[in-house]
Design a protein around this nucleic acid. Sequence first.
DNA 1: ATCACCAATGTAACCGGTTACTTTTTTTTG
DNA 2: CAAAAAAAAGTAACCGGTTACATTGGTGAT
Lengths: 336, 336
Amino acid sequence: MSTILDVCKLAGVSKATVSRVINGIGQVKQSTRENVFSAMKELGYRPNRLAQALATNKTHTIGLVVSDFDGIHFGLLLKQAAASAEFAKKQLIVTDGHNDPDYEYEVILQLEAQCDAVVLYSRTLTDEHIQRLHEQLTIPIVVLNRNMPEQCFHSVSFEQEAAVTILMDHLFEKGHQEIACITGHMDNPTGKARLNGYKNSLQAASIDFKNDLVKHGVYDMKSGYQACKELLNEGITFTAIVAFNDCMALGALKALTETGINVPEQVSITGIDNDPVSEFFTPRLTTVGLPITAMTKQAIELAITLCDETKPTHSYQYKGQLIERESVSSVYTAKN
Amino acid sequence: MSTILDVCKLAGVSKATVSRVINGIGQVKQSTRENVFSAMKELGYRPNRLAQALATNKTHTIGLVVSDFDGIHFGLLLKQAAASAEFAKKQLIVTDGHNDPDYEYEVILQLEAQCDAVVLYSRTLTDEHIQRLHEQLTIPIVVLNRNMPEQCFHSVSFEQEAAVTILMDHLFEKGHQEIACITGHMDNPTGKARLNGYKNSLQAASIDFKNDLVKHGVYDMKSGYQACKELLNEGITFTAIVAFNDCMALGALKALTETGINVPEQVSITGIDNDPVSEFFTPRLTTVGLPITAMTKQAIELAITLCDETKPTHSYQYKGQLIERESVSSVYTAKN
DNA sequence: ATCACCAATGTAACCGGTTACTTTTTTTTG
DNA sequence: CAAAAAAAAGTAACCGGTTACATTGGTGAT
């Protein structure tokens, strides 16, 4: 790999001049500029980003940290992040935290010198972790898809509790009263908020909360399948399932189908996310859309803005919307 | 962010000594070492990776470039890549090429200064692109999941043609003769190889190739759905579908189900990949497993090896294996 | 006490760029 | 045509580390 010195020699000028040509700033005679360009071309020269970053203290890079690469949103999330970053001519570095908070914490600290800002989509870090990071890091953080209790972060979040409320209300409207719940991880704010949505909806409808109707999953199809099997094995009656994401809802769908239970005739199912695959199952899944693409766009763009200017912290809140398909039926027609 | 100079001042030693302590090389008196450590701790110091990389010409980073973030393998691919990299204490930088060969090419060149080796999982780059990259780059490349015509690259690939052959043989065994084919992108070696598999299998079985039975998709569910709709609309008879990946097979399944055609009673469907979701559809999809996790592990480990030593180029070839589930039935029992 | 040797530490150049400041060259102006 | 102003180019310090080499100080052998 050729360096700026090779270009200097070939073009017969100093480093400063080459640098001026590269960056298009300062005064350079047209003929000199052309010489330098042709020298660069001849050598296949491209500036070393590391050296540039070190000299300017600007990396033109956004770090994106996710707790785990196999989350369901990651297709859309990464795609949009990459698109937004490219649009602003920033490099995007994506790293995962292996679902291990300590490792993830370490990864983010490591990223500090390599990025101008970080977007954090974390499931495993606690609020305290994030708080500590915020104090420790000299680069701005944008927290994505997580409701932070205090307003001291830049964040782009989703109204988790409302998402469940929307589903519950929809099911109530259809006459459902015995509604099972398949949660996600309960060790983080998202899971807790969604469960609150479930509980509060029941309370608002004056229906007793029954612990037996709640099973815990981990957001993948398999755990949804297993949770549903448990419900069935325990002989609990329910006419509908609220799963905390589409994957688990589809896993539950499989469990019911396998057992010979018709969805939605006998049991209705709902999810959250509007995962692209949900449309391809039969029946197509009724769900609450999580606008991950829009949220990601917002977060990356915010991070990019923060590279160049400081802004007062602001939280963007997104709301879910009910997407009605065929996995829910009225309980009145279902009784048979 | 504190620098090595801050540590020097606080510990009362020179940069060289601090550097020795950081890297654990050279002679340092125990008491000095302790002083330096406590100074580092007090300051929350962590070495700047960029500066280290610039000074040593070693980044301890592996670059992973994918054509597009929303490919179906990326969950497993990224997860394994991250795991293998962490295991070797290397940083992993993941970048996508937005499905644009020129952009992807540029991205890879940019990565040169930031990585010790690159793993390339590209759908859009041509063989010539890769050849040129190979000549131009000073860091080693490992090509993942792509059969390179010549042996001049490190590569980890999959026997694409054989994967289709396996499926065709399976269908022949079950008595199928009229087998439709839903391809992926035909502008790259993978698609071409798989189509060859289809054609050659037909020829080996003395069945005429019919162009009408072949529809082109783009590896996602929607295109599988549409391809299947076309087949149906054109009124072509077929008893089985070979799709070039699971997603499209599942899209086709949806199209058939919707039309009231029973799978596998009336039409059998097969895919390629063994995508985790395939097990959750009804019927569960019969497919050829693509061992993406093992392949990724191999590729990353190879790349890591190549950071430190040059090795003669070697191609690792992986074979698919038939995973029989319920989406294929015998044509004899199917006739009704 | 002298010398050799080795452990411990420091000095300074270097990695590949950027940039404030200085010097040289060219152009403008009276 | 000389002086002033503007343009063009160069010099050298700096970013935050590493490392070859030089220097210092202490130890044991003679």
